[in-house]
Amino acid sequence: MLILADTVSLKQDEENFMLFDNISGNIYKLNELSYEILSLCDGKNTDEDILLNITESFDATITEAEKDFEGLVRILLDKKYIYDNDNEKGGELYEKDL
């Protein structure tokens, strides 16, 4: 299951959704959907849980949601901002599995 790395943090302020890299200092402005996906990456929700949740909240089809989800997950695994806690080798293997 996906989990946010402890070197990053998420924040929603008045009008922005942000992802912070607390080591390099990089700031990423997210859209609401990406923010929601990342908020659900808590190491407890399965990919299916996350997809179901966002299709409901954002009124999207499962295909649309899958596309967004996979695209985002790929980028974040690459940057090591999330990892798969089922997978001992973390992000790398998960990415290959996709």
Binding site: S9, K11, E14, F20, N22
Partner: peptide, 20 residues
């Protein structure tokens, strides 16, 4: 802690940023 972690995550700082 480093400056980034504090600046991005401190609840006190986020409280101070509330303007509207």
């Amino acid at each position: 802690d480093g400056l980034f972690k504090v600046w991005y995550n401190s609840d006190i700082l986020w409280k101070l940023r509330k303007r509207n």
